[in-house]
Design a protein around this nucleic acid. Structure first.
Length: 110
DNA sequence: TACCTGACGCCAA
DNA sequence: CTTGGCGCCAGGT
């Protein structure tokens, strides 16, 4: 059974739900937290799978430089940015402002 | 079944 | 300091 693979996705979803409002994290941090630091890409894939689940704030997950690399995958063109700003996260040019301040590291916070 | 692409990240030149 | 290439895993064609 490919339960192992699905389990990884499930873990990613779980961590994504733990992201506090107004905070953001990056794929690599989640991957590392799960023990697969080099599988940052898979985290993004998991986000794509979780895109249908509103309980998973995928918009709070950005790449290591704080850029909304995944905004292109949301319904609207700037839906991801809208959601972030709605939580108090300032975004400009697909880039999260004060990323260093609102950055949420699961390996540290958890 | 094999090859290619993809919401990333890090190292090397 | 900037740009390019490689590695990782999974899914689709």
């Amino acid at each position: 059974m490919e339960t192992d693979k699905q389990d990884f996705f499930k873990r990613v979803h779980q961590v994504a739900k733990l992201i506090p409002e107004g905070r953001v994290t990056n794929y690599g941090a989640i991957a590392k937290y799960l023990g697969a630091a080099k599988s940052a890409r898979i985290v993004g894939y998991a986000m794509n799978a979780s895109h249908g689940d509103i309980s998973i704030p995928a918009h709070r997950v950005v790449n290591r430089i704080g850029m909304l690399s995944g905004k292109h995958h949301f319904d609207g063109t700037n839906l991801m940015q809208q959601l972030l700003e709605s939580e108090g996260v300032h975004v400009k040019d697909n880039q999260v402002q004060n990323f260093d301040e609102i950055y949420w590291d699961p390996t540290k916070e958890l």
